[in-house]
Design a protein around this nucleic acid. Structure first.
Lengths: 345, 345
DNA sequence: ATGAAAGCGCTAACAT
DNA sequence: ATGTTAGCGCTTTCAT
């Protein structure tokens, strides 16, 4: 195959150990030896075989990041942050798509890619609690996102209920009374969107004059702009007549705004809109989007740190109780909710 | 460490070979043996150590994809396509950021990650031809994107000149006469944006009445929405008074549209806009964006196929002449260039 | 400061 | 159909 340590050693007239020492920057090597070896390395174009090194060391320096898909800018931006942060810590990232499918998620949750990766960061959508319990305890696993589990794994997520409540309250504070929720999922109580829906309900409940009927909750099949556009159209057609919409995510919000504009409904005058995720997209819409901004940088760092703590922290760290880390979030006000709040509620 | 083949073999009372046969689905194993071994595997929760397998086989089934960054939706969508397509062929993707920095790109171009990856797909920005020539011929390398090199590597890119010419001509066909180009890079002749600029020039040159002054070419520092917004502002302030803008990419176009809208310039009535990349974003802008759509799926597939051909195709394939593959593109007309073309030119 | 040799877990050639 | 064994390329005791 390629050039190995042995080849270099033979050519330089030293043992493999010495070459290994040079390659790894071991201190106690005579400058003369080092130079000679280095010269042969350059001559031969030797590159250490990482696979062999990994096998020997029992570690690869690779972590896997399993996300639904990169087509969603939120996940792309998050992956960007994870890759960059991990690179700074000398870890590389293997990126996998689950497509939000349970079978795929199960595959990763259970030790798929065993001993190829040192650990896994997984953002599940359909994964069930039982799937996690069935896991052979392999590499450490860090969970990401809104789904909640009772399993012994670290979990990184902002407080989704609080964030949704903040978003909804912002709309109510503007004097809106018919605040719709876009992006629920039918009959999936513990699933994604559940916590955000709960936050929405909580804010509505606190606000005496606010409408709280189920006709204000619109389900979507997925989380894309197209789903948002369709759901908004259905909501409008149903006669629900909202004066504000809180959307499960920014993509749905952008789609909803598109439908509103097409139908001559003004944003924010007639209907105010709030999204969730703070994707770059929302900042440059012609009506820029008010949104909940989860601190992606913090999420990415917390996820990687949690993983590495279990990897590098020794036995106590590896055995420590699972932690639930809640990075912060912020409400970013933009044009889609412009307007002064009413004096009285 | 974990459970190895040997452990399973001992427990099942067979040799490692037999266990290996079972694990790899080798046909000639008595059902009884197979079942017994499988049972022990399940009991012990055995998982093959992929690193060891890779070392032994000299192949890892991993390809690296090195992109500037995932924050740009074009790259995110492209990565999405690469990952999905590679997964279907049982390859996994290691995703690396170059941040468009030459030193990073050089690192990957030269056999970084040697023998950890079977091959590399690289989308360079600053990489120079000499960097490629200095490459120790390690794993196969496939180049992606507008930069052109004279180096023995496959290159996948749409015909950027033709695409830019198509885009610009579309604007001219609308009767526009002062078509600006947004997204050039100062004094970087062979760099990104060069080919698209050339396509712009070609279209203008073909169109007798069209303005072709340098004041219509606006440089940007990067390729983000913010860069586009700023460049558009500068162009407007400079008094160049364009009636159309062809942008290096969709992000710049979205930023430009934002500036135009803010300044009360109507799109497309006063200024028509065309982008490049066909990111999802552009489809749902309140004024949806006309754009050049490179066939991302085709690009991703061509890149992976080219790599795998060299990997799996035997010696002839590995030594074959470098190929320059040009997937197709399409002009997608949307609202940002709406309006009937003028009768006479 | 350097060398010799064991062994990480697997596959494949060879043997039975 | 199954067992034995060498060896992928590296790091790491243990010697010297």
């Amino acid at each position: 195959m390629g050039i190995s340590l042995k080849d270099v050693a033979a050519r330089a007239g030293v043992s493999v150990k010495t070459v290994s020492n040079v390659v790894n920057g071991y201190r106690h090597v005579t400058p003369a030896t080092r130079q000679r070896v280095q010269q042969v390395i350059d001559e031969l174009g030797y590159r250490p075989n990482l696979t062999a090194r990994h096998l020997r060391k029992g570690r690869t320096g690779i972590i896997a990041l399993a996300l639904p898909e990169l087509g969603n800018p939120y996940f792309a931006e998050l992956a960007d942050a994870v890759i960059s942060y991990a690179a700074g810590l000398d870890y590389i990232v293997l990126l996998d798509h689950t497509n939000g499918r349970r079978d795929q998620e199960v595959l990763f949750a259970q030790g798929f890619r065993a001993r190829l990766i040192d650990g896994l960061i997984l953002s599940p959508i359909e994964l069930e609690n039982e799937d996690l319990l069935a896991r052979g305890n392999d590499a450490p696993l860090v969970l990401l996102g809104e789904r909640e589990y009772e399993a012994p794994h670290d979990h990184i997520a902002i407080d989704n209920v609080a964030a949704a409540r903040t978003a909804t309250r912002h709309l109510l504070d503007l004097g809106r009374r018919r605040v719709a929720f876009l992006g629920a999922r039918h009959g999936r109580v513990r699933r994604v969107a559940h916590l955000r829906l709960r936050g929405w309900r909580a804010a509505i409940a606190e606000s005496p004059g606010a409408a709280d009927g189920d006709e204000l909750v619109a389900a979507t099949d997925g989380y894309t702009r197209g789903d948002g556009a369709q759901a908004m159209a259905r909501l409008l057609d149903s006669g629900a007549a909202p004066d504000a919409v809180f959307c499960y995510n920014d993509l749905i919000a952008v789609g909803a705004m598109r439908t509103l504009t097409e139908r001559g409904v003004r944003v924010p005058e007639d209907v105010a809109v709030v999204g969730f995720d703070d994707i770059d997209d929302g900042r440059y819409c012609s009506t820029s989007l008010t949104t909940i901004a989860p601190h992606k940088q913090a999420i990415a760092q917390a996820a990687v740190d949690a993983l590495l703590a279990r990897l590098d922290g020794g036995d106590e760290a590896a055995q420590a109780e699972p932690r639930h880390i809640r990075p912060g979030f912020a409400l970013i006000r933009r044009e889609s909710t412009l307007g002064r709040p009413l004096e009285s509620g």
